[in-house]
């Protein structure tokens, strides 16, 4: 009758506790995925609101005395299924004024395909002063076999942009998501 032995019962409850701890750690590892996001939202760290969403600021006082260089960069998907580049390499802009530019993408494969652009702004501290009112990165972009087209971006640089920043870089990675995202 092993259960009569108090030592053995002790072992069982300790082991049960330790196995629960293990399971808890495993669950915690997965919980970290949403938790990091929640933490950044609560603390305001890492500028979580500067994600790929349309900005609503449209009119501001245009700062005619200040010129900021905005550079455009493109990184096509690493599997080589897209050609992707900006039509203009850079622009001189006045903070507070709305500007348009275009990027060109072409599906190099012989089949319909979907892509998603993911934007990034450098330097990071200036990211929250760069507002996109319209961007092809807001939604997945569908392409027919061999189709190529120009895609617009409208943006406005906030006049609050710190004085020591005179150059911003907007770069996109253009991911082929045909395999990985469920089609809506």
């Amino acid at each position: 009758m092993p259960d009569q032995d108090p030592k053995r019962r002790d072992n069982r409850s300790l082991i049960r506790g330790l196995v629960l701890m293990t399971a808890g750690s495993f669950a915690f590892g997965w919980a970290l995925v949403p938790l990091y996001d929640v933490f950044c939202r609560i603390s305001g760290l890492g500028n979580p609101e500067a994600r790929a969403t349309a900005a609503t600021i449209v009119s501001e006082n245009v700062d005619q005395n200040r010129l900021v260089t905005v550079e455009f960069m493109s990184n096509p998907a690493s599997n080589g299924s897209y050609e992707f580049h900006p039509l203009a390499a850079s622009m001189q802009v006045h903070p507070g004024k709305l500007y348009d530019t275009k990027f060109y993408a072409k599906n190099l494969t012989g089949a319909p395909s979907t892509a998603q652009a993911v934007p990034s702004i450098a330097p990071g501290i200036a990211a929250k002063y760069f507002h996109k009112t319209e961007c092809f990165c807001f939604t997945p972009q569908k392409f027919g076999a061999g189709e190529g087209r120009e895609m617009p971006v409208r943006f406005i640089v906030d006049p609050q942009l710190p004085a020591n920043v005179d150059k911003l870089t907007l770069s996109y990675v253009f991911y082929d998501t045909t395999q990985t995202t469920a089609q809506p």
């Binding site: 330790l18 701890m21 293990t22 399971a23 750690s25 495993f26 915690f28 590892g29 997965w30 970290l32 995925v33």
Partner: peptide
Amino acid sequence: LIAVMPVLAGAVTM
């Protein structure tokens, strides 16, 4: 070990 090895297991599963 009990606190962190399962987290690694989760990460590599992802």
